[in-house]
Design a protein around this nucleic acid. Sequence first.
DNA 1: AATTTAAAGTGTAAAAATTACACAATAATT
DNA 2: AATTATTGTGTAATTTTTACACTTTAAATT
Lengths: 245, 245
Amino acid sequence: MEETMTAAKNRIKTFKTIQSEVESTNRVALSVDCVIFGFDENKLKVLLIRSDLKQYQGQWSLLGDLVEPNEGLDEAAYRILKQRTGLNDLFLEQVHTFGEVERHPASRVVTVAYCSLINIQHHKLKILDNELHWHDIDSVSEMAFDHKEIFDTSYSQLQKRVREHPLGFSLLPNKFSLRELQNLYEAILNIKLDRRNFRKKFFAMDFLIDMDEVETDVPHRPGRLYRFDYAKYEKSTKKWNGIAF
Amino acid sequence: MEETMTAAKNRIKTFKTIQSEVESTNRVALSVDCVIFGFDENKLKVLLIRSDLKQYQGQWSLLGDLVEPNEGLDEAAYRILKQRTGLNDLFLEQVHTFGEVERHPASRVVTVAYCSLINIQHHKLKILDNELHWHDIDSVSEMAFDHKEIFDTSYSQLQKRVREHPLGFSLLPNKFSLRELQNLYEAILNIKLDRRNFRKKFFAMDFLIDMDEVETDVPHRPGRLYRFDYAKYEKSTKKWNGIAF
DNA sequence: AATTTAAAGTGTAAAAATTACACAATAATT
DNA sequence: AATTATTGTGTAATTTTTACACTTTAAATT
């Protein structure tokens, strides 16, 4: 190389330079935390595990784990979810990354939060670990680490997302009544909805397939059962304005 | 401790255990990349810097840096932004975290993307480093690392955010005409808008303060100048339905 | 078998928001 | 004085949202 490099040329770093720069930088531990929402008994739930850190004994925490060396972030989230719930065929979305210096008592751990919606009916048998528990959304208070903040952020995001896309279906059994669907939306958004307008809106969306079946074991007129037409929804190109309530 | 611990008790880890677990885990380098949007000459711009990595010579990259050991993520983003543009009094939002294993050629570097909107008129003098350049949004193609993907994600998020909140104002000079405001929205959203309906909508929002001044140096009827009432916007509690166009 | 109970299912009218659309007013330039 | 380019303005049609009440149905009870 020339002696008379310009400033512009001076700033160029070779691979080795960059490598040693990156290698010598302070590195952080990286984890993923999953906020797993479910729906049961007309209540929105979140799946929590008892903290395994003595310092937080008795407190609840999100399902998290350190990211493996050769694992992408999404990959890690899917792995953790699979390990804990048994399934991987579900909606999973990155929410936010939390990196306050002191957020973990032992060391600097930056965590990437993921949010997931699962159908409790389909997954309930997989929860063998009795340190796991479905909590009612409104009973979540103190949590280990900064997990309450992560939960709050994820719940807000869920509320927002559910108004933009018909995601709620993934929380329901394959066949559901419109009442169940409405209960779900009311639970997520924490508002009351008008039954007729709600039905009108979802029928107009045209993603519901009438199963020609009705509920059983209800002590009153049973509702018709529907399933969500995921294929049609995925293919629909018409601009999606979200679901106003 | 007792010999006959239950399984539940067995899983509890002391601080020291956790600490050594976290310390011994594979750690990653952590960086922040800022996608800085500006607006000038009726074009939406993004501020890029020539890559300082020889491998990517000639290619453009986002403004990024490694996160310092005692620095939070937001803090790091503000620092980088301040270092590069001189200002810190601006909107800054985390967008997404990118952690593919091979995204950085030298080592595992996980990066947290932040998005920011700045007023080019106010900041243009701060850009002393001639490796920095404002690029037209539609001329951004190949970039170093996975920065094109980060840019795309951030731009999509900007388009979405700008429909939800009147953020666009932060890209404009303090005083602006409605034509400038409309040009901005058209540039961000990449659509044409009806002038009368656009004006109607923004006047109805009631966050514009008429400055009782008009444009100068235009070879036609000058437009009135307005400024955005940030205080009123912040205070407004009325639910914000977003800006439909 | 008749009655009760509880929720399902259904339509319409008013209000609000969105869209489409055209001409007169103004300042600078020629 | 005429030309040019853009500002500024209103209304009607359409679509979307909201508010609201009665009949139907199946199971459970009497």
